[in-house]
């Protein structure tokens, strides 16, 4: 029911053991050379050249390959040759599992088909942001995955409203927030009314009624919902080559005037109109 990578899917389903997966990952680590290792293996540069480039990287925000070209250790044509060789010799996890004897080639194809079917529900549906941010593709995926989790986890029918930039986060019964760090920096927030908080609690706790639940538990269910969404966003981002770390969620109760967006940040609001007339709001406060 979550965003997964193939190896995890196979272990979770009990088709392979975790030790077989680790064997396959170790085989990948030996086979799939990093750019510098490949350049040395191809006899184009020395380990000492790589070390010099790594030292230079400490004060330069550049990819290793670009830096090696700039420092004159490689030509652009040689860099392209290395990248092509990396792609041509890349060992994917499925093939690695076959090579360590965990699967046959026929079994691999069948399980890949099952994996693709399992993950098809998380393929992005083309949301477009109205403005340019640090990484539009990541935030469009984040909104899209939020919509999918509202359906799958909360079982709520809704209509997404238009995304708009905002300068103030309007006060509501409760907000739950999680911070992203890593390749992108942002705060993910969900704003809910009292009624929606209860609807989320019913879905998360799998209970018909939550009227007797203490406020602490009701708030916790909203925080857990965003924890699930943000964890899956981080997983999807890693498939897109972007590192996103998450911190544990917190609950917020803004003053009546709302929360002003700090300088150097862009805030986007995604209203989610629920079938019963209530509105859940997704907010992304993105560092510029």
């Amino acid at each position: 029911m979550a965003v997964k990578f193939f190896g995890q899917f196979m272990v979770e389903q009990g088709i392979i053991t975790s030790s077989a997966l680790l064997d396959a990952i170790n085989l990948q680590d030996k086979n799939n050379l990093k750019l510098g290792e490949m350049a040395v293996t191809m006899g184009l540069i020395t380990s000492a050249d790589i070390q010099r480039a790594h030292n230079a990287q400490m004060s330069r925000d550049m990819k290793l390959g670009d830096l090696l070209v700039e420092m004159g250790f490689l030509t652009l044509a040689q860099l392209n040759d290395i990248i092509i060789r990396q792609k041509n010799t890349h060992l994917y996890i499925g093939e690695a599992l076959v090579q360590v004897g965990a699967l046959t080639s026929d079994q691999l194809q069948n399980h890949l088909d099952a994996f693709k079917a399992d993950q098809a529900k998380y393929i992005s549906n083309g949301i477009e942001l109205p403005i340019t941010t640090t990484n539009n593709a990541i935030w469009e995926m984040t909104a899209d995955l939020t919509y999918k989790m509202v359906t799958r986890v909360l079982d709520l029918k809704f209509r997404p409203g238009a995304c708009t930039p905002v300068t103030v986060i309007t006060a509501n019964f409760m907000l739950a927030a999680m911070d992203f760090s890593g390749d992108v920096e942002a705060r993910y927030l969900i704003s809910v009314s009292e009624g929606l908080q209860k609807a989320i609690a019913k879905a998360i706790l799998h209970e018909e009624s939550v009227d007797a639940e203490p406020l602490e538990v009701l708030e916790d269910t909203v925080m857990e919902f965003i924890n699930v969404v943000c964890g899956n966003v981080a997983a999807k981002a890693s498939q897109m080559g972007v590192i996103m770390n998450i911190n544990p969620p917190v609950s917020l109760h803004p003053p009546a005037a709302g929360l002003t967006i700090p300088e150097g940040h862009t805030a986007l609001s995604f209203p989610i109109h629920i079938e019963d007339g209530d509105t859940l709001e997704l907010l992304l406060v993105i560092k510029n």
Binding site: F5, S18, G231, A234, A235, S238
Partner: peptide, 25 residues
């Protein structure tokens, strides 16, 4: 909820976890 992040999953197995269950479960 981080089960789908490959590095986290692999790190957990390497540290001795028997399996990793992704949320929502």
């Amino acid at each position: 909820s981080l089960g789908g992040v490959g590095d986290k999953f692999t790190e957990a197995l390497k540290l001795g976890a028997k399996n990793v269950i992704s949320k929502p479960f």
